[in-house]
Design a protein around this nucleic acid. Structure first.
Lengths: 257, 257
DNA sequence: TCATATTATGACATAACGTCATAAAATATC
DNA sequence: GATATTTTATGACGTTATGTCATAATATGA
């Protein structure tokens, strides 16, 4: 019965297409205007069919979040494979907010929606579980980089400081960066000032310098390293972004402006 | 016609009470479960009455956001009045996420909800406008601190660096910190690791050190400064928090643990 | 005390969610 | 190739919430 497998494949393909359509709707019209009917209509199916894939609207959202988080996990794997000193890997992490902003502009929004709901609120157990796992994986990758730094002796844990502090900092700063740069943040009023040039990455440099993570940004040109990273580590993503926006992405995070 | 004024006062008082009730409901049951009927019932009014105050559910949420943002603005005014070197003022800012977490635990959530909606989505014009103004005020305060630092020569703008970079960093980091520490973030999976001790404030110290904002944290004990700030600058807030939680709040952000 | 102005109410119209009995399509069997 | 069976898709239906507005209740002024 080979049919079964083919069916499965088709089913999964349709699921991805629903997610894609949802992303588009979300960007175009916002969450408030997102209805399951629209999602269904986008692929010319009926609402019932959408519910074969997603238990609820919340579940649909969590599927979006999950997809993006697994991408982040994949990016961190590329960083792992990037044979470089720990600080360079940390610098590679500073590029990720920009990648997400370009490839998954709804990432922040969907995360927000998800966190807005009460514990899972009908997202399927399985999905919640996979989200947890992805979170865990991302953390572990980041902690790995910090531990590497300690082994390498490029970073010293002074006083009450712990690897975990760095993890918190790296995550908080990237999260804040994405939140401030998300399209929606605009409506709340930081418009003019929050059109950053090098600010986001400069803050990563400062944070890591502040922890004394060698080599410091005074000893090494991290803007040009970031350009290198775009080309070498995130080549694929860069190409995808260029295809979408027709512009060199490294210029907006990398250089002076 | 003195009556008119009294009426006005009563009306505003009721509005505050609706907001308070909404906060409670939001914490207890989450946004998904928040209905206008419940808000009305909480004060034994009918739904129509709630709509005399708030044009829509979104407007109600934005009223919550606004209230909290005006509090932040007030806190920044206290920092302004705090006669101290610029870096000390910046350190005072690092305490604010903790104050908000305690006094307005719904702050992050409500902001999230608001940003999730499409441009204002029926929040009243007037309210949106006041939110914009509050945002602007907060920014200006922060920029003021940065400019003070430059005047004082405790901070040098090297190369392409701009005061604005600092603003972005301070806001992004505090925002990320609040997001990670909000109750809701838990559901997404960072549970164990994101139960920070000194991590949040340690990251502020590192960020500012990294920018070379003197005196560096190696030159001065900022944990004890934070305790001082709690007592002197945010006395009122500390008391309010103690009254609510019956615990000394400075211990969780301030000291080594 | 009665007229007028203000304020509160909840029935109503509308819209979306999520379910489920039934219809349609695909596959298997003879 | 026709029929039975299994799988998949549909949309009407029940439910719940929003936001409106004509009407009822209450307060003020003459």
């Amino acid at each position: 019965m080979v049919t079964k497998e083919r069916r499965q494949r088709e089913f999964q393909k349709r699921e991805r297409m629903f997610l894609q359509a949802t992303r588009r709707l979300l960007l175009e019209r916002g969450y408030g205007a997102l209805t399951m009917d629209q999602v269904a209509e986008a692929l010319e199916y009926s609402r019932g069919t959408v519910y074969l894939h997603f238990r609820s609207k919340g579940d649909l959202i969590s599927a979006l979040v999950l997809e993006a988080m697994e991408v982040v996990d994949g990016l961190l794997e590329k960083i792992d494979a990037f044979d470089a000193p720990s600080r360079d890997k940390a610098v590679a992490w500073s590029v990720i907010p920009e990648i997400l902003r370009r490839l998954y502009p709804d990432y922040v929004t969907t995360q927000r929606i998800l966190e807005t709901q009460t514990t899972g609120e009908r997202a399927s157990e399985e999905r919640i579980d996979r989200i947890r796992k992805a979170h865990r994986a991302i953390q572990d990758h980041l902690l790995g980089i910090v531990h590497l730094a300690v082994e390498e002796e490029s970073l010293m844990m002074k006083g009450p400081m712990e690897p975990y502090d760095l993890l918190f900092g790296l995550v908080a700063l990237s999260w804040g960066t994405m939140a401030l740069r998300s399209d929606r943040a605009v409506l709340v009023g930081l418009e003019e000032l929050l059109r950053p040039k090098g600010a986001p990455t400069r803050n990563f440099d400062a944070l890591l310098d502040g922890y004394g993570w060698r080599p410091l940004s005074t000893e090494r040109d991290y803007d040009s390293l970031r350009r290198h990273i775009w080309r070498r580590v995130f080549r694929e993503e860069m190409d995808a972004i260029e295809k979408l926006h027709g512009k060199n992405p490294s210029s907006s995070t990398g250089g002076g402006e």
